[in-house]
Structure formats: C-alpha cells, structure tokens
Design a protein around this nucleic acid. Structure first.
Length: 596
RNA sequence: GGGGGAGUGGCCUAGUGGUUUAGGGCGCUGGCCUGUCACGCCGGAAGUCGCGGGUUCAAAUCCCGUCUCUCCCGCCA
C-alpha cells in the first residue's frame, strides 16, 4: 500500500452523487466521489462501478483516449476511495444491467484521483453473500456500505423525518426527557449507572419516558412527542435490543379515540412518505376478549381469516371420549376453517397435527369436505349428517378443511391460534407486502403474578381502568378492564398505550392494588401523585416501536437490520467491545467493588 | 436459566455410509484481452476443517467437554 500517495481533495468539489445521473445529463462535466464497487479490466479498457450512498455509475477508462487516467485505473481495487472528473455520455453500448438506475449513461473519465487505497476486505461488499452476524457486527462500518443496509438506514431516516413532520403539523412539541433517571420497582430490569458525586447511589436508564411525559401534561405543554431511546436489561431476541427507540406520544384533554385517530393519521403519513401501500382510512378495532376468543392471541395476524369458532353446541354428545369429556367438564370444542385444504394429504395433515402437538394440544382433528363427501376420523362418532351440519355452520365449503380441538376455553383458543399461524405459514398465506392493522382495546387491568403471588399491572400502573369497571377494582380486580390499547400490524405489537390516571386517589388505589404499601407508593411515585394534586389534566398517550415499524417497512425480519450499530444476542457491541472491564481506579471513583 | 441450529483459506460454501492431493465461487496475486456490466481466459499463493480431549488402523465426518454466532422458551410493567 506504500506505493500509493493518497491525494488530498485540494479544493475539488463533488458535483453529483453517483446514483443520480440520467440520460438528460449527457454532455455535462461532472466530479464524482465514492468507492470502487467493482472493476472490469478488459485490457485496453477498464470499467469501474463507482458507488456512494445514492447508487452507482459506470466509469470508463480508455487507454486510447486518456492514457494517464487509464494507467492509474489499473491500480484500483475494491473499495478504493476515489474522485473522478469526466464527462457524462450516453452508453456507447446499451447496459445489460436493468436494475442499475444510471444504466443509460456512463462517465468518460478524464482525471482520476486516488483519495485512499483499501486493503483486502474481511467481507465482500459487492456480492450477495451474507457473512456471519458476528463478522457483520465487528465490521459494521463495512456492512453498512452494502446497498441493502444503506436503503434500510435511509428508510429509517425517512420514517423519523415523517414522524416529526406529522407531529409538528398537529401541534406537538418534541421534548427531550432525561436519560439518567430513578430506578422504578415495576417492569423490566434497569440498567444502573453509579454516581460519583453521590456515593452509593445510582441512576437508572429509562425503560420509557412514561412518568416524565405525564409530568409534561401536568405542566400544560399539552401535546408531546419524542423519538426516545429506551433501555431494558433483559435477554435479547431478533426483535429485541437492550436499547431501542420508541416514538413516544402524550396528549392532554384526550380520550382513547383521540389517540387512536391521531396515530392512524401518523401511520398514513409515514406510509405515504415511504412504501405507498394502500391502507384503510380507519383501522379495524377488536376487544382483547374477542382477539383471544377468535384468534387465540392479543395480537392477531389478520392477513389470514381462519377465525376460531366455538362449535361445542353443534357437536353435542358423540360417544367419543375426548369430545364428550369437553362437554361434561364444561370445556369447549373449537375449530377453524382452512380454505382449499380439504384435499390435504395424510402427510400434510400429520404435519398440521404436529403443530397441534407443539402447541400442547392433547388432540387435533380434521373434518375434510371433498367433492360431495365429508371425510374425518371423527365420522364414526359424528355421523355423516352431523359432520355436514358442522361444516355448513362453520362455513366449511367443498374443498375446505375444518381443524378441531377441545379443552379449556382460553387455552384451547390460544393453542389453536398458534396452529392457525403455523398452518398459514406452512401454506405461505402470509403476504409480507400486505399490511393489516388492528387496534386491540379493553385489555385487562391486572394479571396474576404466580411467582410473586400478587397482582401486577398488565400495561403499567399509570393506566386508567375503564370507568364502568372501577367498582370492581378491589372486589374482582382480574375482571377489571383497562383503558389500554395496542396497535397490531400483521401479528406484531407495534404500539401500546392507554388513557392515564390523573387523579391522586385513583393512582393510590392502583398502586395499592399491585401490592405497594402507602410508604412504598409515596417513596417511588410520590412526586407523581403530588403533581396530580396540582391540576393535572386528563391525558392519554401511546408509544410506537420505531425499530419494529422500520423493520416491517423494510421487509426485514430482525430489527438489527435497521439499527446502525446493534448489539448481539449477549448484549455485546462486537465493534467496540462494550460492555468492557473498567480500571480499578474508575471503580474506586464511583465507590464500587466487584463481587463476581 | 432451558432447548434447537451453525462454526471448513480473508469472505460465501461443497464434502459427515470413516480412508478425498479437503472441491467450487468471491477476494488476493502473475499474465492475456477495447464494450464489459456477477466480464472472460490461462497460471499462482493461501485452509488440516472454532478449540480441547476421546474412540479407531484411519476423524472435517463419531463421542464428550468448551468457546463463539444465531433462533426459540422463560423474561421483556
């Protein structure tokens, strides 16, 4: 590499990005700067695909036309950083690369500047190979050069920009909240930050700006949003990072539907400025209870129909032990229709059965409607007539397959919900280009925590119960519904929010409900309740996962593909090595000792 | 904390009925080539198969352990 004497820019100015030149630019003198994506050396003629974040342009070095530039071009290798001066020309020979946006032109290079050479790379940039994730993370700056990653990062920018534009237009203020906050007892594990000037005391990194944004409502700032980094010290997944980004929103003098309307507008705005998919004006709404009953999930994927139906009464007594037991013991028999699978082979049915086994169903049965006939292992118990009645009642038409299972009502729905998705996946029914939004509303207020033997807030303890259920808060807390709502997209939880509590006595009741003593409630959330005493407006809000939203828009299955510098499954940044051991001196400064 | 998958020159991989000079592509390198666009052609260097141990006449291949990456369950108000 020592034979190269990289040239300084020396006042040279770029005139265009590489991906923007078109036929109408022919004849222009241009200066392009970027990376050598590929070079094709034909002997007396060298082609270089010059790449920057915008795309690529073919640069031509012709020995007969410009010997000096040609000689220099012979030195070029992958990922050299160069600047070229030249003239845009229509392609002398039509490009065979139809996907290249600049395919109609090329640059006849008059002068080549080698700004920086490049050593042989630890991964290839210019092909479709996907290296091991560890290697991609270690050399993330190289990974990010790939057109796919540039696209994803640019898309993320567009989404964020469109979010800001939208909320600005709706009168929201973007307000930053602290990163160094107080640790809270509820929820995920906090990342802790020791304080040098407060020996023995710690900040926590926020799991969400929840309390601060509520305080902003008490302040009268009325409408707040923030693209906020949040931190949770929990185990990772493909769609979970220790730090992630939320679009955090709060509105004063607002009820549930005000928030839903506002977010529907946001989603339309974001989609219009990115993927241009057609979305319904209003998103479908479904109660939590319905979602679980009909889809076996609180985040149903509505890209496939296959609604779970209760057929207990239609089946009745059959003499078949498994099904009769369901009726005798007050359990339920449920089923859903798979269109066009009446002719599924035995092998295929066995595969579906395995989905049932994986979902821990004791048994999964099929009723298949073929031409004029009904086929089922249940036929000897049901009889053909009743089987046909069940088919008609469930909408199982000729050529369809009815999938049947029995058990406790909620668990059998949940299990069938899993089978439903497995079958849909197996049959390739989930179109990644289709966007099915759904609001799930009326979540339960509490759920029972077996380990700690107490109630815990299903959403969070600042969520308001539905006014109609308030009188059951103490007598039947598990029946109380909350004014909480989720936005679900294709079976993925995209946003979660609620109408908040804004009155001190209600906040006390809920905190007591989750097992906090008055002292603990006062210690942890006293400032909140104090604030509620000084004229807190009714308010409601929501938070959307920016990483997930962007990943879905980009068609990526992992949020790591839309985060510039993500961490691996152990929470390690393989590029910088974080987290790292610190010196004893640093430990002493923050008054800490190891106990490993 | 638990379960599954993977680890072969710098990169992507073939090869696990046990014995191969461990094969190919990209990249690197020497040479030829004036219209390529995943350019082509001829030649070359580079791997002992994540690491450690075991079984065997013989291990990339089988067994045990371990490390790393990854997916899932738990967990994620």
């Amino acid at each position: 590499m020592s034979e190269f004497h990289p040239e300084p820019l020396n006042g040279l100015k770029r005139t265009h990005y590489c991906g923007v030149l078109r036929l109408e630019d022919a004849g222009k003198d241009v200066v392009l700067m970027g990376w050598v994506h590929r070079r094709r050396d034909l002997g007396g003629l060298i082609f270089v695909d010059l790449r920057d974040r915008s795309g690529m342009t073919q640069c031509v070095f012709n020995q007969a036309v410009n010997a000096e530039a040609f000689e220099k071009a012979g030195l070029l290798r992958n990922e050299f950083v160069i600047a070229i001066e030249g003239k845009v020309a229509p392609r002398a020979v039509p490009s065979t690369n139809e996907t290249l946006e600049t395919k109609d032109i090329e640059i006849n290079v008059e002068k080549l500047h080698i700004l920086n050479p490049c050593k042989p790379l630890p991964m290839n940039i210019s092909d479709d190979q996907i290296p091991d994730d560890g290697l991609r993370m270690q050399y993330r700056y190289l990974d990010l050069r790939k057109p796919r990653m540039v696209r994803n990062i640019a898309l993320r920018h567009k989404v964020a920009k469109s979010v800001r534009d939208y909320f600005d237009g709706q009168g929201f203020y973007e307000i930053e909240t602290p990163i160094l906050v107080a640790s809270t007892p509820e929820g995920a594990r906090d990342y802790l930050v020791p304080s040098r000037v407060n020996p023995g005391k710690f900040y926590a990194l926020p799991q969400s700006p929840q309390l601060y944004k509520q305080m902003l409502m008490v302040s009268g700032l009325d409408r707040y949003f923030q693209i906020a980094r949040c931190f949770r010290d929990e185990d990772l997944r493909a769609d979970r990072q220790p730090e992630f980004t939320q679009i955090d929103v709060e509105m004063s003098f607002a009820e549930r539907d005000d928030v839903l309307d506002m977010i529907e507008g946001l989603i339309h705005h974001v989609f219009d400025s990115t993927v241009k998919a057609e979305l319904p004006e209003k998103f479908q709404r479904m109660t939590y209870a319905d979602a679980l009953e009909k889809y076996g999930s609180d985040k149903p994927d509505l890209r496939v129909d296959m609604v779970i139906q209760d057929i207990t009464d239609k089946v009745g007594k059959t003499g078949f032990g498994v099904l009769d037991a369901a009726i005798d013991e007050g359990k339920r028999i449920k089923a859903f229709v798979v269109k066009g699978q009446g002719g599924a082979t035995r092998k295929e049915q066995d595969l579906f059965k395995n989905f049932g086994v994986a979902a821990k169903l004791p048994g999964l049965f099929f009723i298949a409607r073929t031409q004029g006939a009904v086929k089922s292992s249940l036929l000897k118990y049901l009889g053909e007539e009743k089987a046909m009645e069940i088919c008609k009642a469930t909408g199982t038409e000729e050529g369809d397959l009815l999938v049947v299972a029995a058990g406790e009502s909620r668990p059998v729905s949940v299990a069938l919900g899993k089978v439903r998705l497995d079958i849909a996946n197996r049959l390739n029914l989930l179109n990644p280009k289709e966007f099915r939004f759904l609001w799930v509303v009326d979540f339960p207020m509490y759920s029972w925590n077996e380990e700690e033997n107490r109630l815990e807030a299903e959403h969070h303890p600042f969520t308001s119960p539905l006014p109609s259920d308030v009188d059951k808060l103490e007598s039947a807390p598990l029946e109380v519904r909350a004014a909480a709502y989720d936005l679900v997209l294709n079976g993925c939880e995209l946003a979660s929010g609620s109408v908040r509590i804004h009155q001190r006595n209600m906040q006390e009741r809920i905190l007591r409900g989750i097992g906090l003593s008055m002292e603990e409630a006062e210690e942890k959330f006293g400032f909140l309740m104090t604030a509620f005493g000084y004229g807190a407006p009714p308010h409601a809000g929501i938070a959307l996962g920016l990483d997930r939203l962007t990943a879905i828009l980009a068609g990526e299955s992992s949020i790591r593909e839309v985060i510039a510098f993500p961490k691996n499954t152990n929470g390690v940044d393989l590029m910088s090595g974080a987290p790292v051991v610190v010196t004893d001196e640093q430990m002493k400064l923050v008054h800490l000792k190891y106990d490993l």
